[in-house]
Design a protein around this nucleic acid. Structure first.
Lengths: 340, 340
DNA sequence: CACCGGGATGGGAGCGCTCCCACCCTAGAG
DNA sequence: CTCTAGGGTGGGAGCGCTCCCATCCCGGTG
């Protein structure tokens, strides 16, 4: 049996105890400046004595705001991605929300049906704003939410010209930095294993790779580009294809650590040594990178910081604060290890 | 500026449209049986036409239940543990809650201060129940929550005789299965790297290790037991100690995959081959295990299933359903790979 | 044919809070 | 000394829903 017996004190009771009116207590609770110091103290004492905690439901109903924010993660992605990604993101979001005393509603979306149910939640006014992770190129959800008049911030973007506010990492810079590093080490034939090209993040990293080569004066060679899907198997298959087409390659930029691990396996199969024969660079700096043999050089994204930034932007939007730019691109950073 | 202009229809408006009273609409919405079929249909039509969605805050206030459940994860643990652990757990919890149309409130607790703030939330009646992950041996939180009269279910337990409802995996069986497997492969000197012994999970796996040896007729040897802390570095240090104390060992049971990775590194340093010289078994079946070279034999815990079970137990408790046992121990499973 | 039990329904009374308007009192201005 | 600002304060009016009691109406009884 459930038994939430402890009938908690109400605003009214606090008011009675402090010898003031309901309105005054409400003002004190909400930090209004229009209360005298002595009254404030009296109310504070009553609150402490009674152990008063405002009822959230009543607040939400009367004030039409919930002090909660939803973070939406497509379940398919949660499986696919370098695992710690979402935990790091959650960590950043959570930290920032906690500071602002907001609640985090986590929504894993598994199916179209659940997606629709989520829209119902929004309509039920359960949250003040929405954070969207890993949105696909053709996802209409961000626009729908905006139409409902609910603040949104996305992690990543759907295209170069994204209309909805977002926080992304500098994926182009990531590709460039990786290539620049490889070039600096004297590599001549640098290949790449990309993500699925219907995702902006994959195109951006590929773009960075090309830009890096161009800046170093290397001629582009489409034979050095293989498409993966961000999975280990995909990385392995792509690497095999590359070895077949361009056996003379001496370096690979994989667009994720997990694909780099797959590529590593394919290289080992083919008898190529890392880094002696082929240098390898990944993206993410996931734990996998550190555990690889040799440890993987990789480009780190500031995932937790992205989470924090998203939360901050959203809260600003919710409170109507004159906000910073609705588009933020955070810098990435090369982490050099033994693989090149 | 925020603008949730779309003033949504209320129960009252639906009632007017359907030509019935408020009470009737409420009954239909909540699936009460005391409504005639024709009336039900009329109301359903009105709901559809108006696009009515009940306001959650009002429901919570009037009905004193929130349709939300909190999942509490200590942040320190989130960093420490084999990364996908919590994501898998979240996934299971989320799936089960979604089916019951409940919301998941995720709370990462970073500090004592935040823990207290969380108790405030509970008092503010924001959730119907609480799921607690990775509770330490001396954590008073579970008992505190119960005192507040709020249903709780924990993941793991604090001791053998845990009074609070929990879902755990069979850690003793895990240790036993690992040892039995190693014995079956003809290993004679089987060592173990444990977790921190103030955690029940670490003691249980160690207990399983000992039981396994005893069952195989091996004499216990405390020199073959080294204490780690569930981190890679800890695993490496513990392994070094073992090699020093018992250079003749030919197998190691590490109480987590991450520690196994550390042990692997120490073995490599010492010039021992895996599995030829030393066989290695971990616990968790994290992605790290698959990526190791050779791939790691490990004992898998049904993490997602634990999450689902926890959620189910909690919901039963919330609704006062005659529940299954408040203690559940889910089976673990040996996954054989190349490391032994 | 009056009477009765019970299923179906309507709607008042809150749930605990925020909003906001009216009101009080004090101090400075005229 | 009267008048005028305001800062402080009290409390009515909801927010949208659930609970629950009163009421209505029907077929079945005696």
């Amino acid at each position: 049996m459930n038994g939430r017996q402890h009938s908690r004190p109400t605003l009214e009771q606090v008011a009675a105890r402090a010898g003031v009116g309901r309105g005054t207590v409400s003002r004190v609770i909400n930090g209004s400046p229009r209360v005298s110091e002595s009254t404030r103290a009296a109310v504070a004492r009553a609150v402490a004595e009674l152990g008063y905690v405002p009822n959230q439901a009543a607040r939400a109903l009367a004030g039409s705001r919930t002090d909660a924010v939803a973070l939406v993660i497509p379940e398919a992605e949660a499986r696919l991605f370098a695992e710690p990604y979402f935990l790091d993101l959650i960590r950043g979001v959570s930290a920032e929300l906690a500071e602002a005393d907001k609640q985090l509603l986590l929504t894993l979306v598994r199916s179209e049906q659940e997606r629709q149910r989520f829209e119902q939640y929004l309509a039920a006014q359960r949250v003040d704003g929405v954070l969207l992770a890993s949105v696909h190129g053709d996802d209409p959800l961000p626009d729908r939410i905006r139409e409902l008049g609910i603040p949104v911030v996305m992690n990543g973007r759907r295209s170069e010209a994204e209309p909805v506010p977002y926080v992304d990492s500098d994926n182009i810079g990531a590709g460039r930095a990786a290539v620049a590093h490889l070039v600096g080490r004297g590599r001549q034939r640098i290949a790449t294993v990309t993500g699925p090209l219907d995702m902006y993040v994959a195109r951006a990293r590929l773009g960075g790779y090309r830009a890096g080569l161009a800046e170093a004066g290397h001629a582009p060679d489409e034979g050095l580009v293989a498409t993966g899907d961000f999975t280990e198997d995909g990385g392995r298959a792509a690497m095999r294809g590359l070895l077949e087409r361009r056996p003379e390659l001496d370096a690979v930029f994989a667009a994720s650590d997990v694909m780099a691990a797959g590529a590593r396996a394919a290289l080992r199969e083919a008898g190529r040594r890392v880094p002696e024969d082929v240098a390898l660079v990944g993206v993410d700096d996931s734990p996998v990178a550190r555990l690889m043999d040799p440890p993987l050089t990789t480009v780190r994204q500031p995932i937790e910081e992205m989470g924090r930034t998203m939360a901050r932007m959203l809260l600003d939007d919710v409170t109507g604060t004159p906000e910073h730019s609705p588009k933020r691109v955070l810098p990435t950073e090369l982490v050099v290890r033994g693989s090149c």
